[in-house]
Design a protein around this nucleic acid. Structure first.
Length: 426
RNA sequence: GCAGGGAUAGUGAAGCGGUCAAACACGGCUGACUGUAAAUCAGCUCCCAUCGGGUUCGGGGGUUCAAAUCCCUCUCCCUGCA
């Protein structure tokens, strides 16, 4: 398999010498927002579009760093809230920062903890999907409930630790401090991810808060950067997060507001369905400066998300579904997902996906993995995580190549038709 | 041989006259996972069916309006004493 990413060890550490933290667009797909490029970080370059591997707690669950490299993983996204709780941002700092602490030594990102406002708030005990898809009922209305672990106010969020229940508070300022301590190459501004079914009045209120938090995040970020600069430490980038739900006026307004903050890149948050990409994502990207990188927060589960995201100008993705579903027995293949725990695979001695070049498919059969799951053997989790993560990283790599070759639309149509077993319409 | 205890759905195990097709756990089947609260969660799991119906609690026979639950008997298992 091609080794597209650039190893980082010999790379000169760069400082912030360009406003966009060194993002070069190398190819554009005619008559579209899709592009391919290179994102430069102090820990190495990232070829975009790229799928960033989920490493929430400074580990890609069940995989070693060598395994992540073997599937061509270029960068890892960790989470500020989780690392604040364990082991503590100070410990990660003492360990030399995220990349060194986990001995990844490649590019890293951190999410701000803003998503936990949602997942531990209105979505707590309901599940993100339940909130996103339910049309009625408590989950749909996404009301505050008494047992949720995150409660929001004008200036920040009060969390109760999901580990021991202890009280914690996060603000834009504290999130920035923590992220500089953790030391990833790219930080996200502290935002609120509103429920997809929140009322419009709430979305407006939430967006105003997210904008104020973004402004405060930027001020605090610059302040800490000055401290670091004086200490001779390298720059860490700040990407602002665009919200605004499904309301065009708000998405555009949000994109303009965040652009004006002169951040290094952008996250687009609060997107839950493929159908929101040609609309909400598109509106946002149209208002954002072309020359800066854009990240679609948390999307990819549906596969079509990845094609649509690239088509509408997204450079980087992350989604934890691939490792989680791997651990839970759901495997991606070129012709759709299968549940490897199902009885039908008990005597199926072929690979998960006969076309797949990953270690799992090169070495093991469905029957074997089915057995490992039934027997509660831990190797099942690793083999499936490796396969699913290869699947998605490799797919985005192929999408990138199709942008470079100009074959994107043909590739998209044929791939999705085969995957969904019918022509794809978002 | 005598005395006592026990046999409950795939497995273990509650239940000890009606609210029992029978708790619970495991096993089995299926589904769901989206900036990770997650090696997790949800549903189904005697038979046929949409409501609903039909057979169950070691076998057989009783008592009762009503029995997994009470009585008799048989079979098998366990514990003492011989």
């Amino acid at each position: 398999m091609p080794q597209n990413h650039i190893m980082t060890k010999d790379k000169q550490i760069t400082t912030k010498d360009t406003p966009n933290y060194g993002f070069d667009i190398t190819h554009k797909l005619p008559n579209s927002l899709a592009r391919a490029g290179v994102l430069h970080t102090p820990h190495g370059d990232i070829q975009t579009p790229v799928f960033i591997v989920g490493g929430t707690k400074a580990t890609v669950k069940t995989l070693t760093n060598d395994q992540v490299r073997s599937i061509n993983g270029q960068a890892i996204l960790a989470n500020t809230y989780h690392l604040m709780l364990r082991p503590g941002a100070d410990i990660v700092e003492q360990g030399g920062g995220l990349a060194k602490f986990m001995n990844w030594n490649g590019p890293t990102f951190t999410d701000s903890g803003g998503f936990q406002v949602f997942s531990l708030g209105v979505a707590y005990k309901k599940g993100i999907n339940a909130v996103a898809n339910s049309e009625q009922g408590d989950a749909g209305k996404a009301k505050a409930s008494s047992d949720q672990l995150a409660k929001i106010d004008e200036f920040g969020v009060n969390f109760r630790s999901h580990i021991d229940g202890s009280a914690l508070r996060m603000t834009p300022e504290s999130s920035m401090r923590l992220q500089w301590q953790i030391g990833a190459d790219v930080h996200m501004a502290f935002d609120e991810c509103p429920s997809p079914l929140a009322e419009e009045s709430y979305i407006r209120e939430s967006l105003a808060r997210t904008h104020e938090w973004a402004r405060l995040s930027k001020i605090e970020h610059d302040k800490i950067w000055q401290e670091h600069q004086q200490a001779g430490k390298p720059y860490q980038a700040l990407w602002g997060v665009v919200q605004g739900a499904r309301i065009e006026e708000l998405r555009r307004e949000s994109a303009r507001f965040i652009s004006d903050l002169d951040v290094d890149g952008f996250g687009i948050g609060g997107i839950f369905e493929p159908a929101e990409i040609p609309t909400a994502v598109n509106w946002a990207v149209q208002e954002l400066p072309e020359d800066k990188p854009k990240h679609l927060l948390g999307m990819g589960n549906q596969i079509s998300d990845l094609f649509l995201g690239v088509e509408y100008g997204i450079d980087t993705f992350d989604c934890i579904a691939f490792t989680r579903q791997g651990r839970n027995g759901s495997c991606y293949t070129a012709t759709g997902r299968i549940n490897i725990k199902n009885t039908q695979f008990k005597t199926d001695f072929t690979p998960l996906d006969p076309e797949c070049a990953c270690y799992t498919c090169q070495n093991h059969t469905k029957a074997y993995i089915n057995h490992l799951f039934k027997a509660d053997e831990l190797l099942a989790l690793t083999l499936n995580s490796l396969h699913n993560e290869f699947f998605v990283v490799n797919l985005v790599d192929r999408i990138r190549q199709s942008v470079i070759d100009g074959t994107f639309y043909d590739f998209k149509a044929s791939y999705l038709e085969r995957y969904f077993k019918k022509p794809f319409n978002p």
